[in-house]
């Protein structure tokens, strides 16, 4: 028994539970595939299934990672500083540029998220189905999305400004008598 398990591990590359649980997963998937294969639109479903992964992994991720790198370069936050800061952490001043970077990142990510999730409404897709379902005309929410985006950036900017003012006030205060 033990020998058989060792042989499974050596050839297959993992234990019996690994094999069993994955086989179960593929049995369900296979059963679904057989059932759906009869549909005229089965090919489109497969395309959307694989396409969703490709769009996320090979388009969305590279794009937002690249935008972030460009943003970092634009704001002036170096990826790798020349030398580590020798001062103890409490004495280290949080670089203003880094704070600025994050105060741009945060509303940008929020706006991007809202755009992705509410995409059909923002772009006004499906006007006919919308009319049939609601008895009203679909008005694209692009303006609303831009307004929310503006509000997010505004809040972020105000918080950034307040932090910056407070930091300056703290720095100008004379240190404790020594």
């Amino acid at each position: 028994m033990r020998e058989a398990l060792a042989r499974l591990r050596a050839t297959y590359g993992a234990g019996p539970r690994h094999l069993l649980v994955l086989l179960l997963c593929f049995v369900v998937t296979g059963w679904v595939a057989l059932r759906v294969a009869g549909e005229a639109t089965a090919g489109r479903m497969l395309l959307w299934f694989i396409g969703a992964v490709v769009l996320h992994d090979l388009l969305l991720f590279p794009v937002y990672a690249l935008v972030d790198r460009v943003l970092r370069a634009a704001v002036g936050v170096p990826a790798r500083p020349a030398a580590p800061d020798p001062r103890p952490s409490h004495a280290r001043r949080v670089p203003v540029r880094l704070a600025l970077l994050n105060h741009v990142r945060l509303p940008a990510l929020g706006a991007g998220l809202l755009f992705l999730v509410y995409l059909p409404g923002v772009l006004g897709w499906g006007a006919d189905t919308y009319r049939a379902a609601t008895a009203r005309e679909r008005i694209p929410f692009l303006g609303r999305w831009l307004a929310v985006t503006g509000i997010l950036f505004l809040i972020s900017a105000v918080v950034f400004l307040l932090r910056w003012l407070r930091r300056r006030a703290v720095q100008r205060r004379p240190g404790p008598p020594g």
Partner: peptide, 30 residues
């Protein structure tokens, strides 16, 4: 959001898609 841009039946796709996902999720969690 009433945007049937995918061109297949939503019920069929979403129901069976859920089972494919659930099976893979169970395997992943185990």
């Amino acid at each position: 959001q009433y945007a049937y841009v995918f061109g297949f039946d939503f019920y069929t796709a979403h129901y069976f898609g859920a089972w494919v996902f659930t099976a893979a999720l169970v395997a992943h969690v185990v």
